[in-house]
Simulated scan of single mutants.
Amino acid sequence: MSDQVVFPPLMSGHEVTGPNDAFATAQAKAAMGCDAGLIVYNLGANSLSAALVLTPEVPLSRAMTMLPTCAIGFQNALGALAPPEVAVHLEWGGGIRINGARCGMFRVAASNRELDQISDWLVVGFTLPLWPDNNRPGDTPDETALYAEGCVDVEAPRLVEAWARHTLNWINRWEQDGPRPLHEEWRGLAHAMGEDIIQDGLTGIFMGVDEDFGMLLRDRDETTHLIPLTTLLETR
């Protein structure tokens, strides 16, 4: 297995090791003015993390679409590398589900929180556990790790490469064709759509998303609430 990671044109890589956080490092480099397309990654022994730096050309309310775009890129990448029986789904809030159990998380941060303003930068990243924290998986049946789900042949460097390629492809499609293809792909991957969930303190049925991927949640009083993706933004 080679740890060298090769990125497609328009993208570049920066590896961090040990306790260094890929998501935080990507934000720091973005704030210093690095080029868009930089992927910071950490190939840990027990976990994999990576984060992509973007420089939006649209207001933050629309640029947040890059969160589900990067998540779809990840699903497509893992789907191509994992055995065909492995199911990969995506939570609206950034969670990754493998064979129904939680397995990692996507996060997003931006240079500002003003919805109608264009951010200087946007960073979308994920962390994926490779091995369980303990030898008693029955203690946490709703949580898993990649290699516990029959994916031991999925090499972390190859997954980062595939994520970069698939994400770049979806970004290009979004720019050329608008949000419709992205929505169609995401609906087939969304976890818990049509089910009762709790989000931002609200309980209701997850009905779907609006054009900018804001969650549509219908409560018991038949009131539909719109929860924008910007509620997921983390502060640096």
Rank of each mutant, 00 (worst) to 15 (best):
M1H: 14
S2D: 11
S2V: 07
V5E: 01
F7L: 02
L10C: 10
S12L: 04
V16G: 01
V16A: 02
V16E: 00
T17E: 05
G18K: 03
G18P: 00
P19Y: 03
A22Y: 02
F23M: 04
F23L: 04
A24C: 03
A24T: 12
T25R: 10
T25Q: 04
A26Y: 01
K29R: 14
A30K: 02
A30H: 04
M32Q: 14
C34G: 11
C34Y: 11
D35M: 09
D35S: 15
I39V: 10
I39E: 01
I39W: 02
I39G: 00
N42E: 09
L43Y: 05
L43D: 03
A51V: 01
L52W: 03
L54T: 10
L60A: 06
S61W: 06
A63D: 09
C70M: 13
N76R: 14
N76T: 08
E85Y: 03
A87L: 07
A87R: 11
V88H: 00
L90S: 08
R97K: 15
N99Y: 01
G100H: 12
G100E: 12
A101L: 05
R102G: 07
V108S: 07
V108K: 02
R113E: 14
R113H: 14
E114R: 13
D116I: 12
Q117T: 14
I118K: 07
S119Q: 15
S119T: 07
D120T: 09
D120N: 08
V124G: 00
V124T: 09
P129F: 10
L130K: 04
W131I: 09
D133T: 14
N135C: 08
N135E: 14
P137S: 10
T140K: 15
T140P: 15
E143P: 00
A148S: 09
G150H: 03
E155M: 12
V160Q: 06
R165P: 04
L168F: 10
L168R: 12
N169V: 12
N172G: 10
R173D: 07
W174R: 14
W174C: 13
E175F: 08
R180E: 15
L182M: 15
E185H: 10
R187F: 08
R187A: 15
A190C: 13
H191S: 13
G194C: 04
D196K: 14
D196Q: 14
I197G: 08
I198A: 09
D200F: 13
G204N: 00
G204E: 02
G204W: 02
G204I: 03
F206I: 12
M207W: 06
M207H: 03
V209K: 02
E211R: 12
D212L: 08
D212S: 12
M215C: 11
R218A: 09
R218N: 01
D219S: 01
T224Q: 05
T224H: 00
H225V: 01
L226F: 01
P228G: 05
L233Q: 00
T235E: 11
